[in-house]
């Protein structure tokens, strides 16, 4: 059996709005290899975020199968899905979504705290190292309100990586940043995930952003219209 980080088989997602049914995703089948950096492109509202949410075990498909590292998520209960999110997934959002009441280091430590597997000291070391890697170690005790957009996204990347997930899901990570900051963030994301061999699935509608990916998938009106043949994973920048 081929080992995929992510594999989708005929996945559909239909939202019911009263009697009206909206098909957000239609018969999506795809696979992503471990360590691959894949860009998911398409116009706003085409279903990119929905797809990320399904893969990220935030939402369940209406039909079809989603396999994360060969585990069928449809057979997992809430606890199983939660465990999957805690251990396998890291999320980066367009609007950073840092908790305003927590400091930088507390925000980054949050996934570890929720998983509850590490001691305070271990967490402290892991968080400090990561913030050092994203260049935010000088702002450990700052609150998000005191950071720039680029800084917030770097913290968000550190948070997504802190529990060493196998898969990073990034939803328009540069959508709220200027070009320069956007590039910095993507370079960071690419560098860190490659160092750790992590798989990245990034939703974006920016061609510049997509250039950082090994391959691009395009969605339009809920359908996968362009599934480029996976290219060999580049190991260098």
């Amino acid at each position: 059996m081929t080992s995929h980080a992510i594999a989708l088989e005929n996945v559909c997602k239909i939202y019911a709005d009263g009697d009206r049914k909206v098909e957000a995703l239609s018969d999506i089948s795809l696979s992503v290899s471990p360590g691959e950096f894949v860009a998911l492109m398409g116009p706003s509202g085409c279903g990119k975020s929905t797809l990320l949410n399904l893969i990220g075990a935030i939402d369940r498909p209406t039909s079809g199968k989603i396999l994360i590292e060969n585990t069928d998520t449809s057979i997992l209960d809430d606890t199983g899905l939660t465990k999957l999110r805690q251990t396998k997934m890291g999320y980066v959002f367009q609007f950073f979504n840092l908790l305003t009441t927590l400091t930088v280091k507390e925000n980054v430590a949050l996934p570890l705290e929720l998983a509850g597997q590490m001691t305070e000291e271990e967490m402290h070391i892991r968080v400090s190292n990561l913030l050092n890697q994203v260049g935010m170690d000088h702002r450990l005790d700052f609150y998000p309100a005191n950071l720039s957009g680029g800084e917030m996204q770097r913290v968000a990347i550190a948070r997504a990586l802190v529990n060493k997930p196998d898969i990073i899901l990034a939803d328009e990570p540069t959508g709220n940043l200027d070009t320069e900051n956007g590039q910095h963030v993507l370079e960071l994301l690419q560098r860190l995930t490659q160092e750790n061999g992590q798989t990245v699935l990034m939703a974006t509608h920016s061609l510049e952003a997509a250039q950082y990916a090994h391959r691009t998938l395009t969605i339009r009106d809920g359908k996968l219209v362009d599934n480029q043949t996976p290219s060999p994973v580049e190991t260098g920048a």
Binding site: G56, I58, D78, T79, T82, R85, Q86, T87, M89, Y91, F93, N97, L99, L110, P111, L114, A115, R159, N163
Partner: peptide, 16 residues
Amino acid sequence: RREFGILKYLGAGHQQ
């Protein structure tokens, strides 16, 4: 709501 939503993304379960 937003905080709870984010927490879910970050791995918080229903019980938590």
